[in-house]
């Protein structure tokens, strides 16, 4: 992973070329056991802020246990779409939706949906690392405790397991009782991943998780995504196309609220069907 970082830093001149070079060929990517079934399904799904249609009639199947990247210029609705999946948009009073968005066949915006239980199944990591001002242990244990776990020993097991999964255990195992805000930015972000994993979600939503991090920390997060691939359905919003091509199996390209193209990553980056996608990935607009 170290090499890719260096490449990324030196290869900004010819985006198209770099893009092709960085792509994993299909043969390099192993298929995932038990994966590939539609996990989240959008049908004519639109999101409105008041009268403004931020996401327009999206139709898509997100496949389970694979990594799906969402790319597009800023303001294209990619984050809005991602946040709609675990209903974080509920926090915005003027926001409402039409069409259907299903998770495991059940309507996320259905009348009987309990958004609290939904968010337990669909975890989210945000742009800026946002650990609570508590100890590392308490940060990870926050979710399990919420859902009724009090046994100290069991909690410890979960904390260790989550931190190991997030590749953070070796760095923090000796200072679990220290304030999480004392960690570096990259560590904080991995802590946020670990915190999300501790509630045992099925889907991980990553909203530009590396935009606030330095290249080294970014590489670690990308490594982590590779490790988690196959265990969780992962959706990552990114404005960094190299990152999308490096980490994802499928890529969705949004433009002005519309889902322009949705294909396997190699296909989208080497052989885009839509003119707009090509213009975007070759850097003609951003």
């Amino acid at each position: 992973m170290q090499t890719t970082v260096e490449e990324k830093e030196t290869s900004m001149q010819t985006p198209a070329k770099t893009a092709t070079r960085d792509i994993y060929l299909p043969s390099e990517r192993k298929s995932v056991a038990g994966g590939g079934t539609p996990h989240v399904v959008a049908k004519d799904f639109s999101i409105f802020y008041g009268d403004f249609e931020a996401v327009k009639k999206v139709n898509a199947d997100i496949l389970s246990k694979y990594v799906t990247a969402i790319i597009g210029p800023s303001g294209c609705g990619k984050s809005t779409f991602l946040r709609a999946i675990n209903r974080m948009n509920d926090l915005i009073p003027s926001c409402h939706t039409t069409g259907t968005l299903r998770f495991d066949g059940e309507d996320i915006y259905g009348k009987l949906t309990d958004e609290v239980l939904l968010r337990k199944k669909i975890g989210m990591v945000f742009q800026k690392p946002n650990p609570f001002p508590k100890s590392i242990f308490d940060n990870i244990a926050y979710g399990p405790r919420l859902h009724g776990m009090t046994d100290k020993k069991h909690l410890m097991e979960i904390v260790e397991k989550s931190l190991r999964k997030a590749a953070l255990w070796d760095e923090v195992s000796d200072r679990l009782d220290k304030n999480a805000l004392g960690l570096s930015g990259g560590q904080q972000q991995r802590l946020c991943v670990a915190r999300t994993l501790a509630v045992e979600p099925e889907i991980l939503l990553l909203d530009e998780p590396t935009s606030a991090l330095d290249p080294k920390a970014t590489a670690k997060i990308e490594d982590l995504i590779q490790e988690l691939r196959g265990s969780y359905t992962i959706m990552i919003v990114t404005h960094n196309m190299q990152q999308a091509s490096r980490v994802s199996d499928y890529t969705m390209f949004f433009y002005e609220g519309t889902l322009v193209e949705h294909a396997t990553t190699p296909q989208l980056f080497t052989n885009p069907k839509d003119r707009m996608t090509e213009d975007y990935i070759t850097g003609r607009f951003s």
């Binding site: 926090l91 939904l118 975890g123 946002n130 609570f132 919420l146």
Partner: peptide, 19 residues
């Protein structure tokens, strides 16, 4: 962001406020 993080982990609104 604290609020978002907590809600994202499946916490209820009241629980987020209290904890």
């Amino acid at each position: 962001t604290y609020k978002e993080a907590s809600l994202g982990l499946g916490s209820t609104k009241w629980n987020t406020i209290v904890t």
